[in-house]
């Protein structure tokens, strides 16, 4: 594979950005290259649609230039979920590509893109084979965003500040690091102030229309319906425990209450859920639920704790396909609502 082709596939590499710089083109000038603009549009819309963009091996130069423009379009939409979705689709693209690369190349790209020292080794511990060791610190920059228990540090082979991983895991972590980088940049002042130049008004209009259709799933503030089938497994488990008369931890109560309030349930609806509990104290419960709903006290409406927190409290149970893609129970709920509307049966 040629070096140029690599730069098109892996825009996080330094060579890719210096390629763009060599042309010393501003975003505005890219408008003069219709091929680049249309590839950028494709790349951005693939991201919004949750599809994986495939770079063109016959014309890597166009794609190298198209990437920064696609990213600019996404940041220009000014929607957190759009950035997240684009970044997730990029993560998947990298993951698929990286796991096919030879070990040395993977290690080299990790070093170049993120300064990670992937130490190559061939170590077998019992039945498990490891291909690399990496720093705990770098591992923890990315792995907490993954959800299954095999990514928890406690379930890894850790020694002397290094975590032992397989090649496929290295690819996943590296692609996760790219995703983090894309998401993190969105909160930087420079990107917050950034506006896409008016020459791209037509493209932005197209993307905005696409985003408006998609956005229903991700955007907050809309009235939601309570559809039991769309609830994430963690919330379902808490409700099951509750109806089985089990006593709930403080965190479980909080998570359930905040979830119900955030999908639009009233304080009374939520109280009804808890009324079967053995130690139910109506007055106290109302006070607490109203507090979480932001009706009293600090007047802040609390959001549901995110997946990471629930996992830490042992409340993340039976994660399913959709859980792998989201980081928050409410996002799961909105996404699942959308799927149900489109007739997708199982999560």
């Amino acid at each position: 594979m040629s070096a140029t082709e690599d730069q098109a596939r892996y825009p996080f590499l330094k060579e890719a950005s210096s390629f763009v710089e060599r042309f010393s083109l501003g975003l505005k000038e890219l408008a003069d290259y219709p091929g680049v603009v249309s590839r950028a549009m494709e790349w951005a819309s693939c991201g919004l649609e949750g599809q994986i963009f495939i770079t063109d091996p016959k014309d890597p130069e166009t794609d190298i230039l198209a990437y920064p423009l696609a990213l600019a379009f996404i940041y220009g939409l000014k929607k957190e979920w759009a950035v997240n979705r684009f970044a997730t689709s990029e993560q998947k693209r990298y993951d698929g590509l990286l796991r096919l690369e030879p070990d040395e190349k993977l290690a080299r790209m990790a070093k170049e893109g993120f300064g990670w020292e992937l130490e190559r080794l061939h170590l077998s511990v019992e039945e498990k084979r490891f291909d690399f060791a990496m720093g705990v610190r770098e591992y923890l920059d990315v792995a907490p965003h993954f959800h299954s228990s095999e990514w928890k540090l406690v379930n890894r082979y850790v020694q002397g500040g290094r975590v032992y991983i397989k090649k496929s895991e290295a690819a996943r972590l590296l692609s996760g690091a790219v995703k983090n980088k894309i998401v993190k940049r969105a909160s930087e002042e420079e990107i917050k102030k950034f506006e896409v130049p008016p020459v791209f008004d037509r493209q932005m209009e197209g993307l905005r229309a696409m985003a408006a259709k998609r956005g229903q799933v991700y955007e907050e503030g809309q009235v939601m319906v309570d559809l039991a089938e769309a609830r994430p497994p963690c919330i379902v488990a808490i409700i099951n425990d509750l109806s089985a008369g089990k006593s709930l931890s403080h965190m479980a109560r909080f998570a359930l209450t905040a979830f119900m309030i955030n999908i639009g349930k009233s304080v009374d609806d939520v109280l009804l859920l808890f009324s079967n509990v053995a130690d139910f104290d109506a007055g106290k419960a109302r006070y607490q639920v109203e507090h979480i709903a932001g009706q009293i006290g600090s007047k802040t409406k609390y959001s549901t704790p995110k997946c990471d927190v629930l996992r830490s409290f042992g409340l993340c149970v039976n994660p399913d396909r959709l859980c792998e893609e989201v980081w928050h129970p409410l996002i799961y709920y909105r996404a699942r609502l959308g799927e149900l509307k489109r007739g997708k049966p199982n999560a």
Partner: peptide, 8 residues
Amino acid sequence: DGRREIAD
């Protein structure tokens, strides 16, 4: 998140 993993 990273600190939580270490605590866990």
